[in-house]
Design a protein around this nucleic acid. Structure first.
Lengths: 344, 344
DNA sequence: CAAAAGAATGTAAGCGCATACAATGTCTGA
DNA sequence: TCAGACATTGTATGCGCTTACATTCTTTTG
């Protein structure tokens, strides 16, 4: 701004105090809803506030109170609807309680995540949501020494180092396996997400592998692919070479890719090949055939993270873990189970 | 935290100064990369910093410098991949320049948006991204009196009140109309998004209506629906009652709904009915038949907003408008145009 | 070699707010 | 009517940092 007006001084609490003929302490009291201000004085202050267009300065307040009334979220990406939905809910719930949300995107890079955690601490967020239980030692150390309240969402583990609000990825995948096996599928393959530095993806693989073993089976093929329809579609080609009769996908995006690849290969779903997803994105239900998948409480995780973080902040306690449920939604990419219920 | 350790005092600049045997000014200089610090002293300070695990306090810095190094974004929702993608890119680009991002979600509610803008100002963001050109007088007044640098994205208008980084929604839709008309479609209907308080949705309708008029045509039916597959699918039923031979959809989500509704009604796409979307979400290309739609530079808008806001902040200038291009992507839900090119 | 110039560091004054504590004012009951 | 209790307001300090200005230490130059 070359007109010099950019730095036109915003009204400050002192200005309001002068205009209202009171001290700054009283203005502060009015602003913070203190009860011990006479109505007449309060009215005068409020009049001055709106006359001057006074807007409080949150940084100054944070400095004085050592509270920022802000939450942080470090997530892998927003380009997956499941995270977008979680962050959306997190923001809504935080705002309802008067908290802002600052977000950072790690691109599934744990070293970057550690840097972002540090920045969140610099910003002075009062609470932080992370995704999963895989974090670098650096990140853990930062969290530990600063004692920043945080919750790791999207996962749930008995022995998690941090409070978890999420679900058991392995257990959810085991349920998928049970369904497939009960349905008569035996040659099961898996197209997983990248497992390096991603406990959720790893747990899903492990959950499937172990439960298969329980049934005396093993994966006929296991490939990892990035979370993109296009790449999953390409990865499906070699995967299908093993002639599986069912493909377990690491998430719905991958399932979309396999779905399209199978259709292109002229395979009948679910008779030639069954497909299962994970997340229950809106489109899984609409596609034809509709995809059997696992419902994940994304929005609920976001909401609960906000609430529990803020509760912990305001009551000066530690956030606690919460194990949420997933639900297998059987649709048309797997045969209706004949005897799924009651199976081991 | 009942163990009282929650308030374990974080090391402060003063602590570092003492440990290094220098003044706080020197520590500050080291932190901010000032050149006039001897290497030997700098090393001592840096040693003290890491020994104490010192983490700078951004609020204090903001208070002293009157800069927050944070950008804000107020968006309608994250539950639409197009906004999620834009915010994702915004964050990445901001971070590359050392800026944080705080986001708020308005749910397409302009009054709420004004409140959120105010909160952004309180937070002291240095720049703000908004969506579209429809804003309340209250929001505009806040922006004007505080002179907060901001860019309205996702839209572009000659006479926009604020800098725009976006595209001409009406022109993009006009192109869709040209394509349909050139293709021989004449009974064209439109399933639009909610136009109240949404200039983008309104421009898309206007753009279609006006261009149709240019061809001597008018919409055989026009219905508005929320941006959800399910609701669009339901709204498609009455819309199809007008027996259109083509349906222009306000965005891809709506197009998905119409796509499924048409399939369910046993209509052949594109022969019985053509469908066009808007946004070019990943899935539009994968669905069968693949949806003809308009490519929108969502990630680019996010990236450009970050860059131009930060440039404006750091050079003390005003952000400028940028008109971006959209592109009609003809796929399988419309007949291949026989003579689209060269048409009026 | 002394003085002037320049480089490196320190001193101290806020930035805008909240809040402990002090100082008033008001009301109660005897 | 007055002491005491309580309600209301003001005073003044500090949150952790940056930065203009002052000071000290080096170097350069005549």
């Amino acid at each position: 701004m070359s007109d010099g007006k950019r730095f036109l001084k915003q009204a400050t609490q002192t200005d309001v105090a002068q205009a209202a003929g009171v001290s700054t302490a009283t203005v502060s009291r009015v602003l913070n809803g203190s009860l011990l201000v006479r109505d007449e004085v309060r009215a005068r202050v409020e009049a001055a506030i709106s006359a001057l267009g006074y807007i409080p300065h949150e940084s100054a307040r944070s400095l004085a109170t050592r509270r920022s009334r802000a939450l942080g979220a470090v997530i892998p990406t927003l380009n997956n609807a499941i995270f977008a939905s979680g962050v959306n809910a997190l923001e809504q719930a935080a705002r309802e309680r008067g908290y802002s949300l600052v977000i950072s995107i790690s691109n599934y890079d744990l070293d970057l995540e550690a840097v972002l955690v540090r920045q969140m601490i610099e910003r002075g967020v009062d609470g932080l949501m992370l995704v999963g239980n895989d974090h670098t030692a650096a990140a853990r150390a930062l969290l530990a020494t600063t004692r920043l309240r945080h919750i790791c969402a999207w996962a749930w583990a008995e022995d998690a180092a941090s409070p978890n609000i999420g679900f058991d990825n392995a257990a959810a995948m085991a349920e998928v396996v049970d369904h497939l096996v009960a349905d008569g599928y035996r040659r099961i393959a898996m197209l997983a997400g990248p497992t390096a530095g991603n406990d959720r993806a790893r747990d899903r693989v492990q959950g499937a592998v172990k439960r298969l073993a329980g049934h005396g089976l093993s994966l006929v093929n296991l490939i990892e692919t990035p979370y993109s329809i296009r790449e999953a579609r390409a990865a499906a080609i070699p995967l299908l070479a093993a002639r599986p009769d069912a493909v377990i996908c690491g998430n719905d995006v991958i399932a979309f890719g396999v779905h399209f690849a199978a259709r292109e290969a002229g395979l009948a779903i679910p008779d030639d090949i069954a497909i299962t997803g994970f997340d229950d994105l809106t489109l899984t239900a609409e596609l034809s055939p509709a995809i059997t998948t696992v419902t994940v409480p994304a929005a609920e995780m976001g909401r609960l993270c906000a609430q529990h973080l803020i509760d912990a902040i305001e009551t000066d306690t530690d956030p606690v873990s919460l194990r949420l449920d997933t639900r297998l939604v059987i649709r048309q990419t797997t045969r209706a189970a004949s005897g799924a219920i009651g199976l081991p």
